[in-house]
Design a binder for these strands. Structure first.
Lengths: 181, 181
DNA sequence: ATCAGCATGTAAGGCGTTACATGATTCA
DNA sequence: TGAATCATGTAACGCCTTACATGCTGAT
């Protein structure tokens, strides 16, 4: 069982529900998924070609007029590959926060810089949290199928952790302002 | 102001406090830093060579007996580069959690698989949280300088977010077990 | 004696991003 | 008419990981 490229799994996961073009796939990834996974045309299109030769997906020309359009469809083999991945125990969870890196090394700078970096982080998180809450509300009003439950869980993961981040920001700012300088 | 490679900044940050060998640097990164940033010999050694030619660091041969040993020291230019980076507003914060990806697409699998994946995640987080708490306790008993405050803040970030993750795990498991199937 | 840990480094490959290149269509 | 969006793709580059290659030293 070869280690699959993750972008392949994202695409198979999306195609499991509906046929999509590469462009559509990019848009889907840029939605709620982007909080825990990213994708770009530069890896989506090559992955589509590759998975087609491996018979995990099939394409059909759905061009409209002069506008080229290729719609992809998942095959039974593709569904199998997706399920296999879901059943694998290994999951790589990585966090790379440059803000924390900067904070860790802030002894080389100043309290002011450290505070400023935390404030920037806080602002970004607040913006993203708003968006996640919109996704969450939309899901709550539309919990019709099994899939929505899974979407809901990933969204609440984002909300819960971002709220924890914000509480930490408040604490951290307080410490940086109050601790003897 | 060229975008600096992050591994360079990690190394400069560490060398700001003490002279170190490449091997030492790897060990430091594998400690508390590894929760938000990683490094490997494969990028540490080339970075050291590169930063030496750019005069951000200096090396001295500190071999003991037949064992080769090169100790690096940060230069004034190196300190400047580090401070510049700390003062840049841009910070890239990325989270890539394969567990969430699997959960998002669990409609293609089963509740059992989804639960299993969450349990694996929970186990990993619990282990990591224990370690973070040890770091935290060590820091609390040894808050002698400014740097320790920054280390403490990054460690509490980890603790706070991991505790939020665990609460979410409990909620998520409950939902997966109770919701109509 | 042997194994874990100290110590340096290279090579190949994987994976992804950014920028570029091209062109059609829709809507203001 | 021009901009935004739809739509596909390639090329170059960056960065990192994994595996490999080598050898010394200290502890058991």
């Amino acid at each position: 069982m070869a280690r699959e490229k993750k972008i392949d799994m994202v695409i198979l996961g999306l195609l499991f529900h509906e046929d999509l073009t590469g462009y559509d796939i990019k848009k889907r990834i840029d939605g709620a998924i982007s909080f825990f996974w990213k994708g770009s045309f530069g890896n989506i299109y090559p992955s589509l070609k590759d998975m087609q030769t491996r018979k995990l997906i099939q394409s059909s020309d759905t061009s409209v007029g002069g506008r080229e359009k290729i719609t992809y469809h998942i095959t039974e083999e593709g569904k199998e590959a997706l399920k296999e991945w879901l059943n694998e125990d290994l999951a790589i969870n990585e966090l790379r926060y440059e803000t924390l890196l900067k904070l860790f090394f802030s002894g080389a700078g100043s309290r002011k810089t450290a505070l400023h970096n935390i404030e920037n982080f806080e602002k970004q998180i607040k913006t993203d949290l708003e968006l996640l809450k919109v996704y969450c509300k939309n899901l709550e009003n539309n919990m019709k199928n099994e899939d929505h439950l899974y979407y809901y869980l990933t969204v609440t993961f984002g909300i819960d952790s971002y709220e924890a981040y914000l509480k930490w920001c408040t604490k951290a700012k307080k410490m940086l302002r109050l601790e003897a300088r």
